[in-house]
């Protein structure tokens, strides 16, 4: 499954994780699978990179962790979005949309630099 993939920037990963958790508490493995499935494997997330991000965000207070029993009866650490995390997610999503919009506008531009429509 070799594929030309995009490396994920750190800030981006945070948003992806927070988004994944916005549907409800999940453990790290589920989060990683969800991201993989949603992006159709377009974005290459080295799965291990997920965990330091989770720990960092827990320290920042965006998510909360607790040990629970998983669907197949295993002990797993579940992460829940906190109110602060939700706020952060909203903020970041908005920024992302503006950013991608701006970039796509440029990419779909019909006139080059130096020229101005009269």
């Amino acid at each position: 499954m070799k594929k030309a993939s995009l490396d994920v920037v750190r800030g981006t990963l945070d948003v992806l994780i927070l988004r994944a958790l916005s549907w409800g508490p999940q453990h790290g493995y589920a989060v990683s699978q969800w991201i993989r499935d949603r992006t159709k494997e377009e974005l290459l997330v080295e799965e291990g990179a997920l965990y330091p991000a989770l720990y960092r965000m827990e320290t920042k207070g965006w998510i909360r962790a607790e040990w629970r029993v998983s669907e197949n009866n295993r002990r797993a650490k579940y992460y829940t979005l906190t109110a602060e995390g939700r706020r952060h997610l909203r903020q970041e999503s908005a920024t992302w949309r503006r950013y991608t919009l701006a970039v796509s506008r440029i990419l779909s531009a019909t006139t080059g630099p130096g020229l101005r429509r009269a």
């Binding site: 799965e47 291990g48 990179a49 965990y51 330091p52 827990e58 320290t59």
Partner: peptide
């Protein structure tokens, strides 16, 4: 392979976790 450097990830997680415990 898909996970990446297990040792490195573990180190990072432990560092974050410990600083959090201290706080």
């Amino acid at each position: 392979r898909q996970f990446g450097e297990v040792a490195e990830v573990r180190r990072l997680c432990q560092a974050w976790g410990q600083s959090r415990e201290r706080t």
